[in-house]
Write a protein that binds this DNA or RNA. Structure first.
Lengths: 188, 188
DNA sequence: GTCTATATGCGGATAGAC
DNA sequence: GTCTATCCGCATATAGAC
């Protein structure tokens, strides 16, 4: 018999998302989260650097996946297309299946400035990682930065549409529309 | 004779930037900043919501200026050009004259993740404000978001170049190069 | 000045792996 | 039988609310 129930991290993430949704991020204490997950406050901070981080466990995983896809597909097409293809593949794999959870998480983040800041940080880190992966393939630093930033911009536009209640298309379907709109806007 | 020395906010900002540069953000306490500015800790928190905010006083001012410029120049040109023109004008007015201070501030922020997050938040707020200003002029929400984001992307690329030690051109001169590079990258 | 909450450092306990 | 991963307890620094 194991000394502790398994999946401590997942239990903490689930409990946190529930409580943040029920009563808000600010009015939820780490002690409450730990209690609902049947763990202690200390254990929470063993797994997450701070209270916000419990909502961003998927980010590092997502970054790894995207970087891997970029590295795999680079060289054969223009940098922007490489990144867009990578984002499409990863979006399919990691977002489309958990639409409900992603939507609840998004609502929680949208309701709190601190969490928005953290999300922006994660996005910036992802952009940097993509740019670095492109440079690995011989892309110029400035071009890599712009390609990564432009792809993330289109991805964000598509994501915004995806989270609308009346939207039923997948991210993969929405991204090309966003890219077309971006091209039109940038070209003049 | 005035009861207190004038320019409390400015003195606090100057003292904070000095101390952050000398000993780092983390190792500087609010009490130290207040002391150097010949004020109390209480006064610091009357003017700034938290320790980070003392570095971002110019942000709201900058946002106002940009929004005003966007509103003034909208309609006569494509959205992206409108935003770029606004950023050029404001960059001239608010950055070029204080190159040394801006550079020191940038170095301090680059050295600390918390400050980077806050800066990303400010940039996102600026992007939203620009998009809102474009919508006021009849621009579609999605187009406004993309134009604002693309302009900010080019601006960031130009700013990165501007902060290099061996760079002597002004932001106004660097921005068109960044825009050309962005157009090339996005078109394929 | 007290109280609560966040966050960290350090040590201790034990089930399961080797 | 020892080692490691995982979790817990205690003390404490920091910060903000009241």
């Amino acid at each position: 018999m194991p000394r502790w129930k398994p999946d401590a991290v997942e239990r903490l993430q689930t409990a946190a998302l529930e409580l943040f949704g029920e009563q808000g991020f600010e009015r939820t204490t780490v002690a409450e989260i730990a209690q609902r997950a049947e763990l202690t406050q200390r254990t929470f901070f063993n797994h997450f650097a701070d209270k916000r981080e419990v909502l961003f466990g998927m980010s590092s995983e997502l970054q790894q996946e995207v970087v891997r896809e970029v590295a795999a597909g680079a060289g054969s097409s223009p940098p922007l297309d490489t990144v867009l293809r990578a984002l499409e593949v990863v979006a399919d794999k990691m977002f489309e299946s958990r639409r409900a959870v992603v939507a609840r998480r998004h609502a929680v983040i949208a309701a709190n400035p601190e969490l928005q800041e953290r999300e922006l940080g994660k996005n910036a880190a992802l952009t940097d990682a993509i740019a670095a992966a492109l440079q690995e393939q011989g892309c110029e630093p400035a071009t890599a930065f712009l390609a990564a930033g432009a792809a993330m911009l289109a991805q964000q536009a598509a994501f915004q549409q995806w989270t609308r209640l009346d939207e039923t298309r997948t991210l993969r379907e929405l991204l090309p529309d966003a890219v077309r709109a971006l091209r039109t806007t940038v070209e003049g």
